[in-house]
């Protein structure tokens, strides 16, 4: 039961970024990645979540390679929420993507109508501070922090086993940051998610991570 990356190599054109990175994350573990800007933290996150295919090496989830189709058991929340949301979908439709993906992950009894566990979803949205009047809006009508809450909700609704958090709270003020992490910690604990965490803030890494991995 591990998210295991073995000897990952990745390059953009002829510029190598990842050179033989290996990493393993256990369920319930919080791993912080530390490296200077431009060192491939985001690239590693994208490879782990299956957005990018490594040139060499493999990513395995609980012994199986990342699936090419269907819902991925590794969900990533990115640094730029405006890039992670479809600009032509209203926010409720972006959220529904997560709900549908979560239903396909097989928590079936609650998802018979394809709408997911409405009550749990409601509680999650409320805990993240998502207002109902944002649901009908498009991404450009929300602030970065508001969009990020939707990205976090979407990732959690997809029922992942591992969560990749790439600088997810850099656009949030301190109060919202504390609240959002409390929600993520609570969810991760309840479902024993393995979490990979990228942050430039040392106090935050020390608060959250149980292990720190340096890429440099």
């Amino acid at each position: 039961m591990t998210l295991a990356a073995q000897d990952l190599w990745f390059s953009y054109g002829d510029r190598p970024v990842l050179k033989g990175i290996s990493l393993s994350v256990e369920p319930g573990e919080w791993v912080a990645l530390a490296a200077p800007s431009g060192f491939g933290k985001t690239t590693l996150c994208r490879v782990l979540a299956g957005y990018l295919t490594p040139d060499r090496g493999s990513v395995e989830v609980d012994g199986d390679p990342l699936p090419h189709r269907g819902t991925r058991p590794v969900q990533m929340i990115g640094q730029h929420p405006e890039r992670m949301l479809d600009p032509r979908l209203r926010m409720r439709d972006s959220l529904a993507e997560g709900t549908r993906a979560g239903c396909r992950m097989g928590e079936g009894s609650l998802c018979a109508d394809g709408n997911g566990d409405g009550f749990a979803q409601e509680a999650l949205l409320e805990a993240l501070g998502i207002r109902s009047q944002w649901m009908a809006r498009f991404p450009h009508e929300l602030s970065g922090g508001e969009m990020q809450r939707f990205c976090i909700a979407r990732a959690l609704l997809a029922r992942p086993r591992y969560l990749i958090c790439d600088e997810i709270s850099t656009m949030l003020d301190a109060v919202t940051q504390a609240r959002i992490w409390e929600v993520v910690q609570q969810e991760a604990h309840a479902r024993q998610l393995g979490v990979v965490l990228v942050t430039h803030s040392l106090p935050l890494a020390e608060r959250l991570a149980s292990r720190c991995v340096s890429l440099a």
Binding site: L202, S210, R211, S214
Partner: peptide
């Protein structure tokens, strides 16, 4: 919940992790 279940973490691995992060950051 968090306070209840992680005192071990905060005291043991948490501290170790902190040190690890601090070292990495110093290097940076």
């Amino acid at each position: 919940l968090v306070n209840e279940t992680t005192p071990g973490d905060a005291a043991g691995t948490g501290d170790a992790a902190g040190a690890g992060c601090a070292a990495a950051q110093d290097e940076m």
